[in-house]
Design a binder for these strands. Structure first.
Length: 915
RNA sequence: ACCCGGGUGGUGGAAUUGGUAGACACGAAGGACUUAAAAUCCUUUUCGCAGUAAUGCGAGUGACGGUUCAACUCCGUUCCCGGGUACCA
């Protein structure tokens, strides 16, 4: 009997489906394990070989945990709202709902062929009304909540209203509040809601008459058509994620994310501690600056305002009026693109005004410059040229005298941002170490009442509306300028199915075109924008726990049981988007008492990208010579060509089909080639992200039909650590396939049939098995799947060599293997053990007795050089000291009585003797 | 510029976290079986030198130094590659 993987895999996939073998329910008697993949966006291109990498890894872990006795939740779903579907729909005239459904079917069929153990009964789709009903519901809860700064948590907005009615607040009294109009009250509350409306800048493209997403804008022009894009203020929805900034930072300490991932999130949040303080200027005006280095206060030689700063007009002197006008005009004329490209260029303008240093009353000139951003801090800075390079360059450029407060640490040629200098020229801070002076200066500032400590964040509130069609509609109705939430009983507010979904008038979303949907009786008008892609993905991991619930987003008892995601696998590209948003939503739901954990993901593993290979070469236009890619640099007459790996064979030769497929560039190449099959080329090879347009995509279906799903799964794991990015290369796949066939031949002979027997195993065989159990068990737990695969190979090689066909050895091996190669393991298990139809077994445990065999012999090195081995009589469990004594005696005997100077016994591994 | 990763054979990658560097696989070379092919099996494969040979000697984990009986692993300096952020005060 040969290994017919095609038949075997189809058979078992069908069986699993029919048996609902991977259906999972809550079970209080078992420990739970929640293993999750970042759900895919179902694009029209289908899966490529890069996608399944993370899915295979999580599938292995799920199957492994299941065998270990855990109740494993391992679901899959689709992030099915989003821009590409809408664009595709606009192009082809199909409805996004239809194309999305079609794409999902393709995805599911492809996934099933790889043999994943998903419980498809728990599938979720973010574009399904039964799902987005709850996205809308959570949005309403956010809308109806505010962030209480004293309790550091979300509370109902009704609490805030009550407080306003009874006590008022810093800005108004209770009487004033009660006298406010409805509109005034609503505007006031809007400033505290966790989901709120504000005016924000969007990318507006006049030519296309639409608002563009950030990634649709490339270098300041629209990605399609290259039309100019400008900033336009529009009414937008936001989530007040900044309120959760500190908790998002603290939470990172409690989760197992990679250091780089945590660092990215910390940088994104960008917390900095400093002080805000005021510099008096003119009559009764004051400039408020933000600084993290109040210790340098005596080194302030000028202040700089952002050009947009509100005080600019007020404080500008008559003489400087014209210069400032000119400068403001210049700033306005500069596009974002120019500003970004010319960061190094120093520009600015003196306002003619002087501010007073609050400590020594020194007169400080006030400038404006575009290097100061209006959006961060107070939009104004105090400039300390000896300590900050940008301030230094500015001072040099405009000839502003520089005060040195750090003595020899400042060399007069560049700024020095040290905190380790002793302060000079610094009034009451003189002689103090800068590090220590920071706190002292802050205390003084607060004591004198000229400022206060302030924490700043780089992170902005998250824009939550999109002027798009294919997303969740907002359950909000506008009545006389007031946003009125819909009644929760009327959810979901379904997305109207329409044929036209071009942009609406005046930058509104496509929904604005659907008049009978938008315009309501009782002079209400629906919100016409839709929610962004991350709305649905911010909470989907909760829905899997209770996907069909129509009365709640997730039953509390269920979320209590399944709790946090134990293992979350996905790409790094979501480091600051999806992961921050879903962490915030979880914290919010936790505040509301709707879930009992406030971090969604306990452990995160980032799978690397599988890249495709592209090959570069160049052709000389004059000599028709095909040369190396590098020649491009030597002479411009070389034209550059690039092909995906599909067009290049193993030797770097262009395949014949290139000439058929890509006529444009290649037609003449073939006429220049000396060799009909394709000239031999020296190519430069490069790895790039897989994409259809680069012809470097491999489809998993092809691999599966050629080698089988088990080979595919094991091969992707064998390529290297899951976290690592690596180029896709089918070269090594034969090796893995050979391994599986070899395993098969331990059970079946092609001609003679079954080979297995029930003989008692030898110690050597047991040792081989238990060594493998130990290795594979450890590696699977720690996601070192590549070395686990190697361990399997070693074991099967050893067993083949020993001609071991004993079930007592082989069956535990099958159990061990089943997470990696479930089909073949299932088939062989079924063949050798009746009558159970599916593999249900306990995960084998390594027996240390058998493993001790391995530790009996110790290599010995003498003076770090010569080597031999000694055998320690008994099974020393090497607490190093006692083993060293034992080794010492043994070595003495072996050296015929001569005592070694020193014997070092290392972890049961090796003996090093110094004579 | 700054912050994270990472540099190991022809290639992908191992190395129990300080203990015989190069597991496992690919590729390559040679051989067995076969009319032949496929499949399978065996041998060699870090580099250099010596030898008919078994083998021996020397070098070797980007580079240079240090700690240690012992360093891919720890420390310092430096170079290169990948990722993230960027006038954030």
């Amino acid at each position: 009997m040969e290994y017919k993987f095609g038949e075997i895999e189809a058979k078992w996939q069908q069986q699993w489906k029919a048996d609902k073998a991977y259906k999972v329910e809550m079970d209080e008697t078992k420990p739970k394990c929640y293993v999750l993949d970042m759900f895919p966006y179902p694009s029209g291109a289908g899966l490529h070989v890069g996608h399944p990498l993370g899915y295979i890894a999580s599938d292995i872990y799920s199957r492994y945990k299941r065998l270990k006795g855990f109740n494993v939740l391992h679901p899959m779903g689709f992030d099915s709202f989003g821009l590409p579907a809408e664009q595709y729909a606009l192009e082809t005239g199909q409805h996004p709902a239809d194309t999305t459904d079609k794409n999902i079917e393709t995805f599911k069929a492809q996934l099933d062929k790889i043999g994943f153990c998903y419980d498809w009964d728990r599938e979720v789709r973010t574009s399904d009304p039964g799902y987005y009903k709850w996205t809308q519901w959570i949005f309403l809860q956010l809308f109806k909540s505010y962030f209480c700064n004293t309790q550091q948590k979300a509370r109902p907005i009704s609490d805030l209203i009550k407080k306003y009615e009874e006590k008022g607040c810093a800005h108004f009294t209770a009487e004033e509040w009660n006298a406010f109009s409805e509109k005034e009250k609503a505007d006031c509350l809007m400033k505290r809601r966790l989901a709120f409306v504000s005016y924000g800048e969007v990318n507006w493209c006049e030519a296309l008459g639409t608002v563009l997403a950030n990634d649709e804008v490339v270098n300041g022009v629209s990605e399609r058509g290259g039309h100019p894009v400008e900033k336009k203020k529009m009414r937008q929805w936001y989530l007040r994620i900044t309120a959760y900034a500190d908790r998002l930072l603290e939470g990172l300490e409690t989760v197992q994310f990679s250091e780089s991932m945590k660092e990215m999130q910390r940088n994104w949040i960008g917390r900095s501690e400093g002080a805000e303080m005021e510099f008096a200027v003119g009559e009764g005006e004051a400039i408020k600056v933000y600084t993290t280095r109040p210790d340098t206060i005596f080194g302030v030689d000028f202040l700089v305002l952002a050009p947009e700063h509100e005080l600019v007009q007020k404080i500008t002197s008559a003489e400087q009026k014209q210069a400032i006008e000119d400068y403001l005009h210049y700033v306005k004329s500069r596009s974002d693109r120019e500003r970004m490209a010319e960061v190094k260029q120093i520009t600015g303008c003196f306002t003619g005004a002087f501010a007073l240093n609050p400590f020594d009353g020194k007169k400080i000139p006030v400038w404006i410059a575009e290097y100061v951003l209006a959006g961060y801090g107070t939009g104004a800075i105090m400039a300390v040229p000896c300590g900050d390079q940008r301030d230094y360059s500015f001072a040099k450029h405009f000839d502003i005298p520089i005060t040195n407060i750090i003595g020899e640490h400042y060399n007069g040629e560049e700024a020095n941002a040290t905190k380790d200098a002793i302060l000079q020229n610094s009034g009451f801070l003189n002689g103090m170490l800068m590090k220590d002076a920071i706190g002292v200066a802050m205390d003084k500032i607060e004591e004198l009442g000229i400022g206060k400590r302030k924490v700043n964040y780089r992170m902005r509130d998250a824009g939550f509306s999109r002027q798009r069609y294919w997303g969740e509609p907002f359950p909000v109705i506008w009545k006389e300028g007031i946003a009125v939430p819909m009644d929760e009983k009327d959810l979901p507010l379904e997305l109207p199915i329409e044929k036209e979904y071009g942009p609406g008038p005046e930058g509104e979303g496509p929904l604005a075109n659907i008049r009978n949907w938008v315009e309501l009786e009782a002079n209400g008008r629906r919100e016409t924008s839709t929610m962004p892609g991350y709305a649905g993905s911010s909470w989907y991991f909760l829905r899997y726990m209770d996907p069909k619930n129509t009365g709640a987003f997730c039953d509390k008892a269920k979320s209590d049981y399944w709790n946090q995601v134990d293992l979350y696998i996905g790409g790094t590209e979501h480091a600051v988007g999806h992961l921050l948003y879903s962490r915030m939503w979880t914290k919010f739901l936790y505040d509301k008492g709707l879930v009992s954990f406030d971090e969604p993901f306990k452990k995160l593993v980032n799978q690397g990208m599988i890249t495709g290979k592209s090959y570069f070469f160049s052709v000389n236009a004059d000599t028709k010579e095909i040369g190396t890619y590098d020649k491009l640099e030597e002479g411009k007459e070389f034209l550059r060509y690039k092909y995906g790996h599909q067009f290049v064979d193993g030797t770097g030769r262009l395949k014949k089909e290139v000439f058929d497929k890509n006529k444009s560039g290649v037609e003449h190449i073939i006429s220049w080639s000396k060799d009909e099959a394709g000239q031999f080329l020296m190519l430069k090879e490069e790895s790039e992200k897989m994409s259809k347009s680069k012809f470097n995509v491999d489809n998993p279906d092809d691999i599966v039909s050629k080698y089988g799903a088990d080979t595919f799964r094991m091969y992707e794991m064998f390529l290297g650590p899951v976290e690592m990015s690596k180029p896709w290369d089918t070269k090594g796949i034969e090796g893995v396939h050979r391994f599986l066939r070899k395993l098969w031949r331990l059970f079946f002979d092609d001609i003679k049939g079954p080979l297995w027997n029930t003989d008692k195993p030898t110690p050597a065989e047991l040792k081989s098995l238990h060594k493998t159990i130990k290795k594979v068990d450890g590696d699977t737990e720690t996601f070192s799947y590549n070395t686990a695969v190697s361990a399997f190979m070693v074991c099967v090689n050893e067993l083949s060599e020993m001609k071991c066909h004993k079930l007592e050895i082989l069956q535990p091996l099958l159990v061990l293997l089943s997470p990696y190669a479930p089909h073949i393991a299932e088939e062989l298990w079924h063949a050798t053990s009746s009558p159970s139809s599916v593999l249900i077994a306990e995960y084998p445990v390594a027996n240390e007795e058998y493993l001790k065999e391995a530790n009996k012999e110790y290599p010995v090195s003498i003076n770090g050089k010569m080597r031999t081995t000694i055998t320690l009589a008994t099974d020393v469990s090497p607490a190093d000291a006692e083993a060293a004594v034992l080794a010492n005696e043994t070595v003495q005997k072996w050296l015929e009585g001569k005592a070694p100077k020193r014997v070092i016994f290392v972890k049961g591994k090796m003996v090093n003797v110094v004579i």
